[in-house]
Lab assay of single mutants.
Amino acid sequence: NITNLCPFDEVFNATRFASVYAWNRKRISNCVADYSVLYNLAPFFTFKCYGVSPTKLNDLCFTNVYADSFVIRGDEVRQIAPGQTGNIADYNYKLPDDFTGCVIAWNSNKLDSKVSGNYNYLYRLFRKSNLKPFERDISTEIYQAGNKPCNGVAGFNCYFPLRSYSFRPTYGVGHQPYRVVVLSFELLHAPATVCGPKKST
């Protein structure tokens, strides 16, 4: 009989979030998941669920729940959905087409922007091929755009693959930082360890 609440607040209220290319994953298990708490945590810009209804979450049980978190800019949030393409979905964080879970995003301009520009958040701009779903690539190998090998040196047709967002508070919403948490629900042929409040007794 599990009584402890799932530590969603640790994920959502973390002081620092990860850069999207090096997104963070927390496995959540053996706890009571009260998803209604999430609705009250922040004024969400996005709370979209796929393959599951957000209002039914509190009635369900899962084997595992994974919470992935990272920062992107406002106009990239739409890429965090099944079947999307674009720089983020292709080279940084890719959801599977049959994704079961929820994408939660909110504006973090007050936390993640600086007047002089916050350069701490990076994204991958160049990659030889698209990522597979939930693949994480943290390599910093020089990207070869031409025929000549780069031998690890940046220059003509040889690019450092990561680029930094420079978040400034005066930017338009599309270029402001957004914190994203992706909850993916895993149903294996194994005992369910993460249940809503109704199912945990």
Rank of each mutant, 00 (worst) to 15 (best):
S129C: 10
V182I: 06
F185N: 01
D68G: 01
N92T: 03
K94F: 00
S29D: 09
K198P: 12
S164T: 13
D34E: 05
L122V: 12
Y91K: 06
V180F: 01
E76P: 01
G51T: 01
C61T: 07
L95Q: 00
T140N: 11
R163S: 11
N147W: 09
L188K: 15
D98L: 05
P169H: 10
Y35S: 08
A190S: 13
F45K: 15
N30K: 07
P82V: 01
V52F: 12
A81P: 02
T46D: 11
V52D: 04
L183I: 08
V65K: 01
G172W: 13
C150S: 05
N109V: 10
R179T: 03
K148M: 12
L41H: 15
Y66G: 02
A105I: 06
S166Q: 14
Y123K: 09
A190F: 08
N1W: 02
Y91N: 08
R27A: 09
V37Y: 12
G51M: 01
G86K: 02
N118K: 10
C31L: 04
G155D: 10
Q176E: 07
F47P: 01
P133D: 06
A145E: 11
N40E: 11
G74W: 01
R136A: 05
G152E: 10
D137F: 00
L95P: 02
A33S: 08
K199F: 14
S129P: 08
K56D: 09
R27V: 14
G172Y: 12
R127A: 05
T63P: 05
L188F: 10
Y39H: 14
E76Y: 01
A192C: 11
N1P: 10
A145M: 12
N107M: 04
Y178W: 13
G117H: 08
I2D: 12
F126M: 13
L162N: 05
V173C: 09
F8Y: 06
K94P: 00
T63L: 07
Y165I: 05
P7G: 10
C61P: 09
Y178R: 03
N109D: 09
F134Q: 08
F8Q: 03
Q176T: 04
P169E: 12
S184P: 00
N120W: 07
C61Q: 10
Y66Q: 07
V181E: 00
A192M: 11
A67G: 00
N130C: 10
F99K: 00
P191E: 14
G152S: 10
V52P: 05
N130P: 15
V52A: 06
P161Q: 01
F126Y: 15
P54Y: 11
D112F: 00
K56S: 10
S129W: 08
S129R: 12
F134W: 10
K198W: 11
A192K: 11
V32D: 07
Q84Y: 05
N118F: 03
N147A: 14
A22E: 12
F99S: 00
Y143L: 08
G174M: 14
G101W: 00
V20S: 04
V194R: 10
F134D: 06
S69F: 03
V173Q: 14
F12S: 03
L162K: 03
T140I: 08
F160G: 08
R136H: 06
S36N: 12
L111W: 13
